[in-house]
Design a protein around this nucleic acid. Structure first.
Lengths: 117, 117
DNA sequence: CGCCTACTTAGATATCTGTCAACTCAAGCA
DNA sequence: TGCTTGAGTTGACAGATATCTAAGTAGGCG
């Protein structure tokens, strides 16, 4: 791929933001993931992939859902991939995408609000 | 403030991404919030604010924690404010920031992964 | 009133990002 | 082998963004 991606770092990935100040290093990794979700198209792509029946979607089903060209969709999928939010593999003619559920769960946990406070 | 901000839309804010394809309209609002968290500095600011003892922090305590100028921190705080992630009010000489916890909880819920699947 | 401190706003600039058109790569099929 | 279709890559470009310096605004205090 392109730039070196760190992706998951199990030790620091799950402490809620509101529990303690997130270390700069962890903030970089987390921000990269949130940044990838910071575009409406990518968020919809992620949603379509994560909610797909069977847990997988063919790019050929994603592209026509937007008023964008193939290369643009491909670009957004690449961003999601490099952020560790989705994974893909080619099966014959088509490429299938599925969500990285543990990664999403970790991000959800990070935003979790402490019980009281 | 600056550009009109929609912020919370209770009806669409909490359906998990993985439960159903998020509507384009909701995606725009959600993406704006994630985008605001898509910068390491802002994520740390949000974390410092959300985890603050007493639930509030003075800007004067945030600024020196970074190797950035005051205006830059002010800019990032404005982005967080416009994304509806934090709120602020001036009390005497200082300006205090606190996290919009319901908003954070909603975002956490959006990333929640369906039980099985 | 004047001055100092704490933010915020404005303007400038270098970098990044979303998008498309054109091209390349991979797989299936005649 | 060559054609066709699906997907990713490259290059270009308009628009957004992170950062700084300089200037403005607000509140306390002598």
């Amino acid at each position: 791929m392109a730039k070196q991606l760190t992706v998951l770092e199990p030790e620091v990935c799950c402490t809620p933001l509101a529990a303690a100040t997130v270390p700069a290093e962890a903030a970089v990794d987390l921000a990269a993931a949130f940044k990838a979700m910071g575009d409406p198209v990518r968020l919809q792509l992620l949603s379509m992939i994560a909610s797909a029946d069977g847990g997988e979607v063919c790019v050929c089903d994603l592209t026509p859902a937007f008023d964008l060209t193939g290369p643009t969709i491909s670009h957004h999928l690449k961003v999601l991939r490099e952020a560790g939010l989705v994974e893909s593999d080619r099966r014959g003619t088509w490429v299938w995408y599925r969500a990285n559920r543990p990664r999403m769960a970790a991000l959800s946990a990070v935003l979790d609000i402490a019980p009281a406070a």
